[in-house]
């Protein structure tokens, strides 16, 4: 049976009717209309649907929407401060850290959660932090450069 739940996404409160089996990914994309979160595999293998829940990066395809009630959810649409892009967004542009862009929202959120916890990482730590986010276009080099640049305050 469907039930009404409240989700806090990017600081806004949404009331949505969901089935118990519906994932956060489905609800974000289909009910709330935040399509920046991408569906790449639906089984938690690729990281394209990464969002932040209470600051931690999680694949939203593995989270039931009802389990995200009352938590602070951040999607790619909530990363910039109005017109001001987040430093990671700026760095991804500056360093050419994307091509097709499909992995980019998830990659930026994974990197954000990581840098928020580890502001001074080594390159190896950066590589490990994004190892659950697949990118088929860039070969990761420019993504790693972009994240490193943000960590170093460049």
């Amino acid at each position: 049976m469907k039930q009404e739940i409240e989700l806090i996404v990017n600081g806004d409160i949404y009331q949505v009717m969901v089935k118990p089996s519906e994932t956060l990914l489905e609800v974000l994309r289909n009910k709330i209309g935040l399509t920046g979160t991408k569906r790449g595999c639906d089984v938690g293998d690729c990281g394209a649907c990464t969002v932040l829940i209470d600051g931690k990066s999680v694949p939203s395809c593995l989270v039931l929407a009802i389990a995200a009630r009352g938590k602070e959810i951040t999607t790619i649409e909530g990363v910039a401060d109005g017109e001001n892009l987040h430093p990671l967004q700026k760095a991804f542009m500056k360093y050419g850290a994307m091509q097709c862009g499909f992995c980019t929202p998830g990659m930026i959120l994974a990197a954000k959660a990581f840098l928020d916890e580890n502001p001074n990482p080594t390159e190896q730590e950066i590589k490990e932090a994004i190892s659950g986010n697949l990118c088929r276009c860039t070969g990761y080099t420019k993504i790693i450069e972009a994240i490193k640049a943000v960590a170093e305050g460049k």
Binding site: G36, L88, G101, F102
Partner: peptide, 19 residues
């Protein structure tokens, strides 16, 4: 030169088929 649609892609505003 950053790609033309880079800003759309980093903000989640790029519209793919499924969107």
């Amino acid at each position: 030169v950053p790609m033309l649609d880079a800003k759309n892609k980093v903000t989640g505003k790029a519209i793919y088929g499924a969107d």
